[in-house]
Write a protein that binds this DNA or RNA. Structure first.
Length: 594
RNA sequence: GGGCUCUUAGCUCAGUGGAUAGAGCAACCGCCUUCUAAGCGGUCGGUCACUGGUUCGAGUCCAGUAGAGCCCGCCA
């Protein structure tokens, strides 16, 4: 087969093999086996080939035959010669498939002119909302916002690349009791901040917030005033709204500094956006017969949730003072996102501590029949960021770490490391180079360290580990990319112009291993867009870097004779482009030199 | 008391119901006259918390036990 055929069969290898197996199952065992899962996956060990089917063992009971006999019959009816070597039966009844070098060569050669590197855009794009980051107005962004921001951005990037229509929403905390207490406090001690722009910077605001919170916790009268202020806000008092607006504007500027640093694009649509819709949420829940008044508050009592005394737990929709809280806002947001934004997939990226809250809100929305069957709603939760002592990450003095400081330190450390290496190697680089490289390495390291862990577990934050040059880190991968660019500089190679005759030839094991991995990008992205676990993409890119480094170690490129030389140059270029694309989906930029 | 998440090598962590459970770090041993050694190869390292169950097959699914973290009525 040649490159043209490969282009006409654009489906992933796995899909092709699966459908061949499905056809064989029907051909051998009859129509009753239509739709039987062929149980195809990558092999558990490269010595078994590339893919394995476990179907014979699964079907043994149903067919009353030995697995190996079933495998034998299946193979007879199976024609995969287009892309595989003859399949082999092994062990208890596994069917092992090994891809033909010619097939790999043809597929990869086609990637040469494909910016998407073989990854097809989805046929049915879904309107998807990714709700992430969500800092609170009047507070500084801190470590707690790190994971939501990084993971949410990554998920959005991947879904966008797959062709989905993604709306990235920043559900900022710009409403609620905390706001009331801040305005109440400022009215007392710094009234000009409520009427004049830039009267305070965010640092002051944060200090005031802390004091306000203190007052709120110990002074019942202050509490009451704060609640009243919230009611004023919610009912649209002009003066309060103006003060509120000034505070928001101040915070917004500061958030943007962080988002620029992290290269994050997001649309702000805070809690306040849903303010005018809260009343109808209450009304509709009332109509649906879900609302119960208890101690003056309007609640929905939940199925499967209890308080300490074993009583059913309420979700409070409207407080006894008439104010609304976050559950109400989240319910309004669900409705708005489905009815007005026409979202088909709703994704919330917040910490695991909010799992109860979302489970409760989703339950109420379902019982109110606001979530149609064809719409999925997911809480993408993640664990705590912990210090190296295993406790919640804090500064030495016990304060919360500002996100800004955390990122600055990562960049500073990357810079110190780079400078010491330059000195050691007696290299001289411009200030511009050093600044840029440190910036990319530092920020990438923070992002990659976070994304490379399974998000559901807590994660231990360590500058030393994330900035390490060895292992599963951003610098290791950036270096693999830089190595390719080094080859092109050394050999004066223009990867865009390797000639129309250029073809990929896979002769060495290291070449074959690398080639097979390059072909798995699509499957990897499919998996990530389903389970929303970015660490799988990280794992893929890490393995790609390892396989490239092995190839680099064993196969000379520039010194090789033609046609191997051009073929290897193509493999280098494909690797670099795959790394660049993959890292970009993690929100990480590459460097040409480092 | 209830709920959620977790428990895998000395450390940090992967692991789609399938074959002999993997990686990185740390430790130790090798490899630069050859494209950046920020690399590559090798050695050492395991009662997958425990007990049952489902299954042809369980680290993976179910139940229970123990331990850790987080959450649990008017904050978000």
């Amino acid at each position: 087969m040649d490159a043209i055929d490969a282009l006409q069969v654009p489906k992933g290898v796995v899909e092709q093999l699966k459908s061949c197996l499905e056809q064989a199952l029907v051909a051998v065992f009859g129509e009753a086996f239509t739709g039987t899962d062929p149980m195809l996956g990558p092999t558990s060990n490269p010595k078994f080939g590339d893919y394995q089917s476990n179907a014979p063992m699964a079907l043994a009971k149903r067919l009353g035959k030995a697995p190996r006999a079933i495998a034998e019959e299946l193979i007879q009816q199976l024609d995969v010669s287009e892309f595989c070597l003859p399949p082999a039966i092994a062990g208890a009844g596994f069917i092992n498939f090994t891809l033909k070098p010619e097939y790999l060569e043809a597929r990869l050669s086609a990637f040469q002119v494909d910016d998407r590197l073989g990854v097809e855009a989805v046929k049915k794009p879904k309107r998807t909302i990714v709700d992430f980051s969500s800092p609170n107005i009047a507070k500084e962004m801190h470590v707690g916002h790190l994971r939501s921001t990084i993971i949410g951005d990554c998920i959005a990037r991947i879904l966008e690349f797959q062709g989905h229509d993604v709306l990235r929403l920043n559900h900022v905390g710009d409403w609620g009791t905390q706001f009331g207490m801040l305005i109440t406090y400022l009215r007392e001690v710094c009234p000009e901040a409520l009427t004049t722009a830039d009267a305070l910077d965010l640092g002051d605001l944060v200090a005031f917030y802390k004091k306000a919170k203190q007052r709120f916790d110990e002074d019942p009268q202050f509490q009451e005033q704060s609640r009243q202020e919230v009611v004023q806000l919610q009912s649209g008092s002009k003066e309060t709204l103006r003060a509120w607006n000034l505070l928001c504007e101040q915070s917004r500027k500061e958030f943007q500094v962080i988002y620029n640093l992290l290269d994050i694009c997001i649309t702000e649509r805070g809690e306040s956006f849903y303010n005018s819709l809260l009343g109808s949420v209450v009304e509709d829940l009332e109509k649906a017969g879900l609302l119960v008044e208890d101690h003056g508050a309007k609640c929905v009592f939940l199925d499967g949730f209890q308080n300490r005394e074993g009583q059913p737990l309420p979700l409070i929709i409207q407080k006894s003072d008439g104010g609304y809280n976050y559950a109400t806002t989240d319910l309004a947001a669900i409705r708005y996102r489905i009815r007005e934004d026409h979202a088909k997939r709703l994704i919330y990226v917040t910490d695991a501590g909010q799992a109860n809250h979302f489970a409760q809100v989703f339950q109420v929305a379902r019982r109110a029949e606001w979530i149609p069957e064809d719409i999925t709603i997911e809480h993408v939760q993640f664990g705590l960021v912990q210090g190296e002592d295993g406790k919640k990450l804090k500064t030495r003095s016990g304060d919360t770490i500002r996100l800004r400081d955390l990122l600055d330190e990562a960049v500073d450390r990357a810079r110190a490391d780079l400078e010491s290496r330059l000195k050691e190697e007696e290299r001289h680089e411009t200030e511009e180079f050093i600044t840029h490289a440190s910036q990319i390495v530092g920020i990438s390291a923070v992002k990659y360290a976070d994304l490379s862990q399974n998000r559901t577990s807590n994660y231990i934050f360590s500058y030393d580990k994330m900035l390490a040059l060895q292992g599963n880190t951003a610098p290791y991968m950036l270096y693999a990319y830089v190595r390719v660019q080094g080859i092109s500089r050394k050999g004066n190679i223009d990867f865009q112009n390797l000639g129309s005759e250029a073809t990929i030839l896979l002769r060495e094991d290291a070449e074959l291993t690398l080639a097979k991995h390059l072909l798995q990008l699509e499957d990897t992205l499919d998996a990530v867009s389903q389970d929303l676990l970015p660490n799988r993409l990280c794992q893929y890119l890490f393995e790609l870097s390892q396989k490239f480094n092995q190839f680099y170690d064993r196969c000379p490129v520039l010194q090789a004779e033609e046609p191997a030389r051009t073929s290897r140059l193509m493999l280098c270029d494909l690797t670099a482009r795959t790394l660049k694309l993959g890292l970009s989906l993690l929100g990480i930029q590459v460097l040409e030199r480092m």
